[in-house]
Amino acid sequence: MHKVWVIARKEWSEVFRNRLVLFTVALLPAILTALPLAILVGIGRQGFGDAIATGDMPESFLQVCGGLALEDCTAYFLVSQFLLLFLLMPLAIPVTIASYSIVGEKVTRTLEPLLATPVSTLQLLGGKGLAAVAPAVLVTWACFAVFNIGVRVLAPPAVASKVADPMWLLAIFVVGPLLALAAVCVAVMVSSRTSEPRVAEQVSMLVMLPLMFVLIGQVAGLILLNTEMVLYIAIGTAVVDVGLMAFAVNLFQRESILTRWH
């Protein structure tokens, strides 16, 4: 565990001095947090009742609202569309960090001295994974906290209280970290097969596709996000994570990485 921590600390010192990585890591959460708040500010000026027609909301969403009044339920429907944005963050941030921290080692030729140390593959990937997952999760939680405060200020009180209900908490505090782990595993797998950080980053970003489908399905009213569904997503992601971790460790062959990177 000591070496995992040593590697993670070094990654933070190294990767966050890369302006490109820092910019990417900071920009996306800033946009994904500012955008919903800006929309809420715009709608708040008109009044929630006037801005959203109840007909825009799928009828099935009423069961998610529980005892909310129709107008509040409609407002909550709008706010709930932003939940998935907070799940995009833990997917996108670690991909950038992990792509640069692994392929970056190849590009700068620092991987061979590193592999010459008595560090196991598990410790190496553990350290790099921790370095990518931890900032992503912390940034997501921080952005969610900012969003929560914004909702309490801008949205009707009944809506604000729903943003801290079990579905949201499960999504942010359980699904988010699990998605971050999945993203890191994909980035490790892609990084093991490429020598260019940008290529690794772009290919790894494909990990966001399933979530994008869910997002589109939710907006189109085809998918209804509720606590039960988020729980299923959490279980499904955890299972996928286990498989991805095993596959990533297996794919990270020290020897082939050393002899094929030229």
Binding site: K10, E14, N18, T110, L111, P113
Partner: peptide, 9 residues
């Protein structure tokens, strides 16, 4: 190694 492989930053 053939190249120093230092962390320049």
């Amino acid at each position: 190694t053939e190249t120093p492989g230092l962390y320049d930053r």
